[in-house]
């Protein structure tokens, strides 16, 4: 991006120095001022968001219930309390675990679907639609469906009992050991379609002749996929990792609506914890401090991914 912005428009090398100077002057005169054009976006997006971040930073130093007119300032006390808060650390643990599991499984499933649907499967479009439809459905609307599906007398247990695995039937949502996996399964159900579509498109750009050459050299299906296709779509994998990581930090709808972040905080995420603290428990100052930490984590992560991506490019 920096490269494009530094380059002056127009690529023709000028023939003489004098001409170059006039050309540059003309170009400059011809390129009108752009600041007024970007101001609406800066005001709407930057203005609103940075205003909120600044405000959050201020609230995070208060002991405030969100209503009282004169909150007391407590300095960094909220942050100290957060670091000693076991629920906070639980939420962090859940987020990390959630990211790793959902990312790995989504990548595996999405990649496999993409490879398979590139393999002259009949009625491929039907499979494509089935896998992608969850992406467009609102998690909030699907939540009641999953509450029923995973209920003690729900469809999952019914299926298990009818295929002879009745011993596995259990109250999936109601016990701490399975609640988090349920949230992961729902998320994977929802987002594998996106992973699949991205890989599917990326694989369409793999050079056919390279594949053919590999085949002629005797490479089997597995080798072709592992040594040619998988490295070729690495850019997509990196993009998906960033999306998944940001998604994990933003997780709110599904744990809130399916398990109410429980039982016993088993599915507590930073998003649900902040929501609870802000709206239900009126610890607005504490929630703001949590928000600040969440923001810093998100930003550090984004920069980290950016740097890692750049390093990779240099090495190639």
């Amino acid at each position: 991006m920096t490269e494009t912005s530094l380059r002056r428009p127009g690529r023709r090398p000028p023939s003489s120095r004098g001409e170059a100077a006039t050309l540059r002057a003309r170009r400059r005169r011809l390129q009108p001022r752009g600041l007024p054009w970007i101001i609406p976006a800066l005001v709407l997006s930057g203005g609103l968001i940075y205003y909120c971040i600044g405000y959050t930073g201020y609230i995070s130093t208060l002991d405030w219930d969100g209503i009282s007119p004169d909150p007391t300032s407590v300095g960094a006390n909220n942050f100290v309390r957060i670091l000693q808060d076991p629920v906070f650390w639980q939420a962090v643990q859940h987020t990390v675990l959630f990211f790793i599991v959902t990312f790995v499984l989504q990548t595996f499933l999405g990649f496999l679907f993409a490879v398979l649907l590139h393999s002259r499967i009949k009625v491929a479009v039907v499979y494509k639609v089935i896998v992608f439809v969850p992406v467009v459905l609102a998690p909030a609307i699907m939540a009641p469906v999953f509450r029923q599906l995973f209920a003690p007398d729900g469809e999952l247990n019914w299926v298990l009992q009818h295929v002879g695995l009745g011993a596995l039937a259990q109250p999936w949502i109601g016990q701490t050991s399975t609640a988090l996996p349920v949230i992961m399964v729902i998320t994977i159900w929802q987002w594998t379609g996106l992973t699949f579509v991205l890989y599917f498109a990326a694989m369409g750009q793999v050079d056919e002749s390279v594949l053919e050459a590999a085949r002629i050299d005797g490479a089997g299906n597995i080798r072709t996929i592992a040594n040619i296709i998988w490295p070729d779509v690495r850019g997509t994998t990196v993009a998906l990792a960033i999306l998944s990581a940001i998604g994990a930090l933003k997780t709110f709808d599904i744990p809130w609506l399916v398990t109410i972040a429980g039982p016993n905080e088993a599915t507590e995420f930073l998003g649900t914890y902040i929501y609870k603290m802000t709206i239900q428990l009126d610890h607005v100052g504490y929630a703001a401090a949590l928000s600040v930490i969440l923001l810093i984590v998100a930003l550090v992560m984004a920069i980290g991914f950016q740097l890692a991506g750049r390093e990779r490019e240099v090495r190639d």
Binding site: G46, I53, I59, L294, L299
Partner: peptide
């Protein structure tokens, strides 16, 4: 300006609750 905008990409919306509410 561009990076100022891009930094907002990672923002979880739950962070906006308290300030927006007030």
């Amino acid at each position: 300006w561009f990076w100022l905008l891009l930094a907002c990409l990672t923002l979880p919306e739950v962070v906006l609750l308290a300030p927006l509410f007030a």
